Simulated assay, not measured.
Amino acid sequence: MGVHLITGAGSGIGAAVARLLAERGEDLWLLARDETRAGALRSRFPGSRTLAADLAEPTELAAALGKQELPERLDSLLHIAGTLEPGAVADLDPAAWQGMLAVNVVSPAELTRVLLPALRAAPGRVVFVNSGAGLHAPPGLGGYAASKFALRALAESLRAEEYRHGVRVTTVFPGEVDTPMQARLHGAFGLPYEPGAFLAPESVAAALAGVLDFPADGTLSELTIRPGC
């Protein structure tokens, strides 16, 4: 049984991963934006422990987490939370850019920094759930794609830096997944939403479990998952 900290466990891929690991009897730590959401996660995943800190405020993360009990060792840190605001580069204002960069890049970097002692103690894995937009920047998603390209760079540097400590780093690039974010995105672009055409969150969760279970003699540096055949 391992110890795992998950962001974004409230819905979508994060919730599917939390369910899967809970069914396996793993020890879960779940990050929530505030105490109200933390209580909801504890009710949903009995036996889990929670931390409350807002990923939209990366400069306050260390102080917020410093007031709470943290795990002494971590077998994995799973960065699954993310935010998206669609819009052409001509239309996105600085607040939209800053919001996506804060949640999607700066907070994962800061959370990883704070938890590196626990990850080194295991040694554990850091898993960044990226996006197909982290490999190809489509029109209307320039801000989101930029944050995901930056997240890939963060993972690459971290992988090289933490190799000597035994901490392994994986980036997972899912294609379209049937999540609330995907539904909002299709609505924003006026596109029909057909859940059966997308990956199920449970399928991505199964792939992430495979990353966690990969033998210790190697690292899955990057993994791309696409819907369909």
Rank of each mutant, 00 (worst) to 15 (best):
L220K: 06
L111C: 04
R184A: 14
I225N: 07
L141V: 02
L151Y: 01
N130P: 10
R73C: 09
H186I: 08
A81E: 08
E69V: 15
A95W: 02
N104P: 01
A9F: 05
A133Q: 15
E156A: 15
S48W: 03
S76C: 11
Q68N: 08
A90R: 15
K67N: 09
P138F: 00
V127A: 09
P117Q: 05
P192F: 09
R125Y: 02
A63V: 11
S221E: 15
D34M: 03
V105A: 04
E57Q: 15
G134D: 01
P215T: 08
A209Y: 05
A207I: 12
A16Q: 02
R164V: 14
T50D: 03
L28D: 06
A150L: 04
P227E: 12
A197F: 02
D217V: 09
K148D: 03
T50Y: 05
E85S: 15
P138I: 06
L5F: 01
P86A: 11
L141F: 10
L77G: 01
S107F: 07
G196I: 06
A32M: 07
G166T: 00
D91I: 06
R184T: 11
A160M: 13
A206L: 15
C229I: 10
G210F: 07
R125G: 03
T7P: 07
P227A: 12
T83N: 08
L65Y: 02
A188W: 13
E23L: 10
Y193W: 13
L65K: 11
E110K: 10
V105I: 13
P138N: 12
A38G: 03
A9W: 12
E176M: 12
R19T: 14
D213I: 00
G134R: 00
E161S: 06
T219Y: 04
A205C: 01
E69P: 14
T83W: 14
D54K: 07
D54I: 11
A90I: 05
G99L: 03
P108R: 02
G210Q: 06
F198N: 13
R42N: 07
V103Q: 08
A96R: 15
A109G: 13
E110I: 14
R164K: 14
G143M: 10
A155L: 09
V177N: 07
L84W: 15
A38R: 07
L101M: 14
P58Q: 12
T36I: 11
L70M: 13
G196L: 12
E110R: 12
R73V: 09
P71W: 00
L191V: 02
L141T: 05
R226P: 06
F198T: 10
V169Q: 00
M100C: 09
A40F: 08
G187F: 07
P180Y: 08
L28P: 05
R73H: 14
D91A: 14
E222H: 11
L28C: 12
M181R: 11
G228W: 04
E161P: 03
P215W: 03
P174L: 10
F45D: 09
L212E: 02
